[in-house]
Nucleic acid binder design. Structure first.
Length: 490
RNA sequence: CGGGAUGUAGCACAGCCAGGUAGUGUACUUGUAUGGGGUGCAAGGGGUCGUGAGUUCGAAUCUCGCCAUCCCGACCA
């Protein structure tokens, strides 16, 4: 190996950074905290978008687009919302540049100061609810089920490729409903969609649950989330779905006339999933040789590498490879035949492993003679020689198997690193080793803060399926009726 | 914004302490032999040494300012 990436064991965080760059997913840009998503990375994101978008459409949502800029005054209409985001907003103050009279390029034209400053959206609740006010008059206008694909900006102090960038891409759904029950059902439904996407497409098991008041979205009455475990045992919030109550309806005066003639405030939800999932995908499955992509999201699912000495051999192999690729494509599998002469087979093997292509076929003179092909799977790095007879069905099965296998592997990792702890001593000892800790908590924000301060662990969620049981808070010893999920998080 | 470090070829780095022709690996170009796990050999192209000033006959090297990036904290999808 000429330029090996650091191993996960050596330095997990450096392994992550290096892998993102080497696998051609993204790189840092000239602007601090902003990344360039490279074609290979973007094509994975496009697959994620497609899968999610289809699920949104199936559940009755439609896409729309709202502006990038938000008048400053909008942001402050919902008190806890502005409190949550104010510290990380980019602000537009001017609309024109002019030549520097001192000759140093261009400067901001002080004459061109905006009357009201514009905020670059950190999220779009305010601009959307101010629009919904015009769209909603009657119960007949409800529910309003809208999603937008957009970029948002949050001026983070410390950034990391995909996991935390100053600008990121996401989708944000914003819905309005006539009743609290309906809005809550929507909130739950969207969390189910996120969980399904994470588990079925990303092959990443998640824990579904409720955020505590501390961790709730700024402006929400309830935040549901899915939490995943990365290979280093840390938690990553993978998607959130918020029940906004009537908070934004009241802030933006969005009322509707009900069937019986009354005037009522609308109930809202919002939900989002971002390019952070790209980081999750990397950290959930990849290994020291590079990316391991779930077949359902891999831009290229199968690569065929010819091994040849002469032009004649290459021609014969090409003919066979074209035949195989046609068969695979017909079955809906994306295939690349890499007959470029720029690199040797060994180089190509390493390169496609780095890029996480799930299945590699190598075909040489020997195979041609025997009517076989060498099939290598990325997840287990095992190879076997397989007859060309029925090869398409074989690979279809193999891709499903890989998708299933990496999910099981991630699930096994999570289960092996999820612990029940009952004392503060156990808690502090175990948290250093990483993983999810299920422990009793007295339900107060003060205790939660204290635990965070002492251990750097946060309550990731109160799991949906938390069984009711008597217990004592690990810190204060006060009574508790269920365990909550603690972890250190990204 | 506090603490620490670093800016030299596309990338990774040496050279700086003890000032004197800008170097190594890799990538790139050409040729050649190779080809079942990052190929060998040969030749070649590429650098305002982050930036501005100062010291000096002479600065990548010494001094001061500025800028940028990274790491550790506070903040966070």
């Amino acid at each position: 190996m000429a330029n090996a990436i650091p191993t996960r064991e050596e330095n997990y965080s450096e392994w992550y950074n290096e892998l993102i760059k080497r696998a051609d997913l993204a790189e840092n840009s000239a602007v601090r905290g902003c990344m360039v998503i490279k074609p290979y990375g973007y094509s994975i994101w496009e697959k994620m978008q497609r899968a999610l978008d289809d699920m949104f459409k199936e559940t009755g949502h439609t896409n729309a687009y709202f502006p990038l800029f938000i008048p400053k005054s909008y942001l402050s209409k919902e008190a806890s919302h502005v409190e949550g985001f104010a510290k990380e907003c980019a602000v537009v103050t001017h609309y024109r540049l002019k030549n520097d009279p001192n000759g140093g390029g261009v400067v901001v034209d002080p004459e061109a100061k905006l009357e009201e400053e514009l905020i670059v959206r950190p999220t779009s609740e305010t601009v959307i609810w101010s629009t919904y006010k015009n769209w909603i008059q009657s119960y007949r206008d409800l529910p309003l089920l809208i999603n937008q694909w957009a970029n948002v900006v949050r001026w983070e102090m410390r950034t990391r490729l995909f996991l935390r960038t100053a600008e990121f891409l996401w989708q944000e759904g914003h819905t309005a409903h006539a009743t609290a029950d309906e809005a809550m059902a929507e909130t739950r439904q969207m969390l189910e969609i996120y969980a399904r996407f994470a588990e079925e497409w990303m092959a990443m098991p998640v824990v579904k649950g409720y955020k505590t008041a501390n961790e709730r979205f700024a402006g929400a009455d309830e935040t549901l989330c899915i939490e995943a475990m990365m290979q280093d045992g840390k938690a990553l919030q993978a998607g959130t779905s918020h029940f906004l109550g009537q908070n934004f309806a009241k802030a933006f005066d969005v009322k509707f006339q009900s069937k019986n003639g009354g005037l009522e405030y609308v109930w809202g939800t919002s939900w989002g999933m971002s390019t952070r999932m790209m980081g999750a995908l990397v950290m959930a499955h990849s290994d020291d040789a590079g990316l391991v992509l779930p077949p359902k999201l891999a831009p290229t699912q199968v690569v065929i590498v010819p091994i040849y000495r002469s032009e004649e051999q290459l021609a014969a192999i090409t003919e066979k490879a074209k035949e195989i690729s046609a068969g695979l494509k017909k079955a809906g599998i994306s295939v690349k035949f890499d007959d470029s002469d720029a690199n040797k087979p060994g180089w190509k093997f390493a390169e496609y492993e780095l890029r996480g292509v799930p299945v590699r076929l190598a075909m040489g003179a020997r195979d041609l003679e025997n009517g076989t092909v060498e099939v290598a799977r990325r997840d287990t790095k095992t190879k076997e020689t397989v007859s060309l007879e029925g090869i398409v069905a074989y690979i279809e099965g193999l891709l499903e198997d890989i998708q299933h296998n990496i999910y099981q592997k991630a699930l096994a990792l999570r289960e092996a690193n999820t612990h029940y702890v009952d004392t503060w001593e156990q808690f502090t000892e175990q948290i250093e080793k990483g993983g999810f800790l299920l422990a009793h908590w007295d339900g107060t924000s003060e205790t939660e803060d204290k635990i965070k301060e002492l251990s750097k662990a946060t309550i990731r969620c109160i799991p949906y399926n938390a069984p009711q049981e008597e217990g004592k808070c690990i810190l204060t010893g006060k009574p508790s009726s269920q365990r909550v999920l603690f972890a250190r998080a990204y």
